[in-house]
Amino acid sequence: KFNKERVIAIGEIMRLPNLNSLQVVAFINSLRDDPSQSANLLAEAKKLNDAQAP
């Protein structure tokens, strides 16, 4: 279950337009470290993406 959620979360994070490459890598590394947190990490990535919108 967590592996599928992690793959989906990674794909979504990679498509967030307002994150820089270091932020994307940090979120992906966090997902690798704890796949059970996929939903929480994706939500945090989306919040950061929205906050950094031009």
Rank of each mutant, 00 (worst) to 15 (best):
L42C: 04
V7W: 14
I28Q: 03
A39S: 10
V7Q: 14
R32M: 14
E44W: 07
V25F: 14
A51F: 09
L48Y: 03
N29F: 12
K47M: 11
L42D: 00
V7R: 14
V25C: 14
E12P: 01
I13A: 01
E5R: 03
E5N: 06
Q23V: 03
V25Q: 10
I8A: 05
S38G: 04
I28M: 11
R32C: 15
L19Q: 00
P54Y: 07
S21V: 11
K47W: 10
I8D: 03
F2Q: 15
N40I: 09
K46Q: 07
A26K: 08
P54C: 14
M14S: 06
L19E: 00
M14V: 10
N29C: 15
L22W: 14
V25E: 09
Q52C: 14
S38E: 02
F27V: 03
L48A: 07
L48P: 00
L16W: 01
A9Y: 06
K46N: 05
L19D: 00
L22R: 12
D50R: 08
K4Q: 14
S36L: 08
P17L: 07
K4R: 03
Q23T: 03
Q52Y: 05
P54H: 10
E12F: 14
M14D: 02
D34M: 08
K1R: 13
R6I: 15
R6E: 15
D34C: 14
A39D: 05
V25S: 10
M14E: 06
N18E: 02
A26P: 00
L48N: 02
V24R: 07
S38R: 06
S21A: 12
F2D: 15
S21N: 10
V25I: 13
N49I: 01
E12L: 14
L41H: 03
I28G: 01
I13L: 07
S30G: 09
P54A: 11
P17C: 07
K1L: 03
R15I: 06
A51T: 07
S30A: 10
E44F: 12
A9N: 03
A39H: 09
A26R: 08
G11E: 11
P35Y: 06
Q23R: 00
A39W: 13
P17W: 04
L41E: 02
G11P: 01
A43N: 09
Q52N: 05
L16V: 00
K4M: 04
P17Y: 04
Q52M: 13
N40H: 14
V7A: 14
R32S: 14
L48T: 04
E12G: 07
D34Q: 08
